[in-house]
């Protein structure tokens, strides 16, 4: 709930400060740009608070959605509790609402938009299985669940049903499409065997 803070003196301006990168030796480097690779495309983004820049307060979810217009990554709780914003960074499923974009400098990120073949449009087998099993209702949880599944199957090609359930247990789905999701994922697992 927003509180009505009494503000003394003048109006504070929202001001960006450059991110400080602390190296292993302890020296501090200030950067003007960060580099991200998203779905195979390289981006160089200026640090700042003008349109198109990365403010140090921006989460990765915010940058993906608002700066790079990759709105397939959803924001549910914006608080790390629901899984909507899951993306893959260096092979691992990550909650992009809990990471600051400036922390991702130099990282390679895959979002839901990066799973299908960019040239042929052919769906990833997980996506295709979700289509075939109608493993969604409203579809808002779907990108996050597919990204978690992708990371899981990258790590473990033949998980058991219980392992799939445990692995997806951080994902909220209010329509209760869970049963069809598990069918869809296990179908991919079976085909991979």
């Amino acid at each position: 709930m927003p509180q009505n803070k009494g503000v003394e003196n003048d109006i504070p301006r929202i001001k960006a400060t450059l991110p400080k990168i602390i190296t292993e030796s302890g020296s501090v480097i200030e950067k003007e740009f960060i580099e991200l690779t998203v779905n195979g495309e390289a981006y160089e983004l200026r640090i700042g608070n003008r349109h198109g820049e990365v403010d140090p307060v921006h989460t990765l979810a915010h940058t993906l959605r608002e700066t790079l217009n990759l709105t397939g990554t959803k924001i549910g709780c914006d608080n790390g509790a629901c899984g909507a914003c899951t993306v893959i960074i260096d092979g691992k499923a990550v909650l992009s609402c809990l990471m600051l974009t400036v922390e991702c400098d130099g990282k390679s990120i895959t979002t839901i938009e990066g799973l299908a073949d960019p040239i042929t449009g052919a769906l990833d087998p997980i996506q295709q299985s979700f289509v075939d099993h109608t493993a969604f209702q409203c579809g808002y949880c779907t990108p996050g669940i597919i990204m978690s599944t992708k990371a899981l199957l990258h790590k473990n090609q033949s998980p058991t049903e219980q392992e799939v359930k445990e692995s997806l247990s951080g994902h909220y789905c209010r329509c209760i499409s869970h049963y069809h999701v598990i069918e869809a994922v296990m179908d991919v697992v079976e085909r991979g065997r």
Binding site: T71, T73, K74, I112, A116, L123, T134, G139
Partner: peptide
Amino acid sequence: KPAPRKDAVEIVTGHAKFVGDIK
């Protein structure tokens, strides 16, 4: 008979535009 949803590909590829996605 089961058939894929008409919007299935948009949903699984992240291209479905919810209100918060509209620019």
